[in-house]
Design a protein around this nucleic acid. Structure first.
Length: 518
RNA sequence: GGCGCAUUGGUGUAGUUGGUUAACACGCCGCCCUCUCAAGGCGGAGAUCACGAGUUCGAGUCUCGUAUGCGCUACCA
């Protein structure tokens, strides 16, 4: 049977890092094995699910490049009738029963503590099969239901025995039936299907063969297997993914960690999808030492290669190398420091994005992304794809060498495309204000630069150095002053590259303008 | 409380069937290069492989225990 996997997010918020990683792993597995990748929106929690979340999740997936679903998107809420029918069938077959116990309200905020407290109070001798309605006769059950008495439907779990399955990541998992309660399939209110029932029925109807999801579902898998068995359906292969934690081993959550866990943050911050995928893939998965070694050599001859290419893997390389067997069991920490602007997100993600921006992506691949960024910032001009195309490409290729995100093209790089750039105060202080003579030197240098022929690297450099010699100042003084004059910054590419990129007229103009800042 | 899972330098990881000085990447520090900042080159600090026993001639690698963290335990998903 061909492989079918699904990503099944519940639309109760934006697509966060952990969910994105789950989607990626499902997608990689499908694509590496010629399987089908499906999407199911688990919108059964009417209270929390929103259309906005659904849209946001879909957007996130499409940004990552994972939106090539092989079949129509399934909305779980549309299948409620089928879920209900399945549960009722189990009741008819005696594999589930009606529970007429009135619904117990639970205090939502500290539900976990509530559970622990109740368990403690109950001691360790809880009988999971003590429900009085478990053994109610079929006739009486029917009669009370017919009389309009509200009931929930619970699965009838065997008293004795053990549940067992082989997780593709965590290995053999066993759990005693005595530890599993007769779980509720349908809630009494409107016979609404509950999560465990819905996932199973949908996975059966979608013919899912491999369930790849977060480790937080590991223990509950036993319950779901019980439902598969009761329904007489084949049990799929399960592969649980290690959780992604926040620094300090705490759970990564929207509530406490805010926007850094949201994928849209990275899209909006100018990250490149392929780099994010690459980073995410390495959170909980890694190629084998052999695969790494293979990527370091070419053919049978060992060649000098940058060792980092081992971790830098394009999407197609990820597909090629991916396997369930190489997924880790231990949770990964997503490293960041909320108090340090330089470290607002994981160092390695930042590095990786820069690596894609400068080296991994070809200029042709990068250009459309830069264009989109410039359009958003109102800096795009049609001539960049027409008469100024060559200049534009050369300039992008020049400045990308020290950028980290796409945002830098319109931030630090603004001066290359517009005249309304800002002068960095510390750059002005350091490179302009420190030397009063620059007030006269800069306009004079402008004169000189203006007449350079041809206006290229060698000539501008020669002109500037000659000018420095004549006026008795160090070339470095003029170079650094020019950098700030032309770009507003104290850092950037080699100055003569900047002269050429900015162009003769603008360069001269900016040199004269900068004299006023001295 | 019960059950489950995990534990290699700050972070992500490698570590073949147990075998000499635990490897790589990010980050950090220094030097070189240099018109600045990156990049790049070179070098460095940083791990008694959570802890304690056991098996063994020999354990990061096998067994047990402890600790810590996380997950599940709901008529949430």
């Amino acid at each position: 049977m061909s492989i079918r996997v699904r990503f099944a997010p519940s639309p109760t918020g934006y697509l966060h890092i952990g969910a994105a990683r789950t989607a990626l792993f499902n997608w990689l597995y499908a694509r590496s094995r010629g399987g089908k990748f499906l999407l199911r929106v688990e919108d059964t929690d009417l209270q929390r699910s929103t259309e906005e979340s659904t849209r946001s999740i879909l957007d996130g997936l499409s940004w990552l490049g994972l939106a090539d679903y092989d079949e129509e998107i399934v909305f779980q809420s549309h299948n409620a009738d089928a879920h209900r029918a399945a549960a009722l069938r189990l009741v008819a077959e005696g594999k589930a029963y009606r529970d007429f116990t009135p619904k117990q309200e639970r205090s939502d905020p500290n539900i976990k503590q509530d559970i622990a407290a109740r368990a403690r109070a109950a001691g360790d001798t809880v009988d999971q099969r003590s429900n009085p309605f478990r053994e109610l006769s079929q006739e009486e059950s029917e009669a009370r239901a017919a009389a309009g008495e509200p009931f929930a439907v619970r699965l009838k779990v065997a008293r004795e025995g053990r549940s067992r399955f082989e997780d593709a990541v965590y290995g053999t998992q066993e759990r005693d039936y005595s530890e599993i309660e007769d779980l509720v399939l349908l809630r009494s209110e409107g016979l609404q299907p509950l999560y465990n029932l819905s996932v199973v029925v949908d996975d059966i109807s979608m013919s899912v063969t491999h369930v790849i999801r977060g480790q937080d579902h590991l223990t509950n898998t036993h319950k779901q297997i019980l439902i598969y068995e009761a329904l007489g359906a084949p049990v799929p292969t399960f592969a649980h993914l290690p959780l992604i934690l926040a620094p300090g081993g705490k759970k990564l959550s929207k509530r406490t960690h805010g926007e850094i866990v949201s994928l849209t943050t990275y899209r909006d911050a100018g990250f490149i999808p392929a780099a994010v995928c690459n980073f995410l893939a390495l959170l909980g998965w890694s190629p084998s030492g052999e695969q790494l070694a293979a990527s370091l050599t070419s053919g049978n001859e060992a060649v000098e290669v940058d060792p980092r290419v081992g971790e830098l893997m394009t999407v197609s390389e990820l597909i090629e190398n991916f396997s369930l067997e190489r997924i880790h069991r231990n949770p990964a920490t997503f490293n960041f420091d909320a108090n340090n602007p330089k470290r607002w997100t994981d160092d390695k993600l930042l590095w990786m994005n820069a690596e894609y921006l400068r080296n991994v992506l070809s200029l042709e691949e990068l250009l459309p992304m830069v264009k989109a960024e410039m359009e958003a910032a109102g800096l795009w001009r049609e001539e960049y794809e027409a008469e100024r195309r060559e200049w534009f490409e050369r300039t992008i290729d020049l400045i990308r060498q020290r950028f980290y995100t796409l945002k830098d093209f319109t931030g630090q790089g603004r001066a290359y495309f517009a005249d309304d750039f800002e002068y960095d105060a510390s750059a002005v202080a350091k490179n302009l204000k420190k030397e009063p003579r620059l007030r006269e030197l800069l306009p004079a240098l402008a004169e000189r630069i203006e007449r350079v022929e041809p206006f290229d690297l060698a000539s501008t450099e020669a002109a500037l150095r000659a000018f420095a010699e004549e006026t008795g100042v160090k070339a470095g003084l003029l170079i650094n002053a020019s950098r700030t004059a032309l770009t507003g910054q104290s850092v950037g590419p080699s100055m003569f590259d900047v002269f050429v990129a900015v162009g003769r007229e603008r360069a001269a103009h900016r040199l004269r303008e900068a004299a006023r800042l001295v």
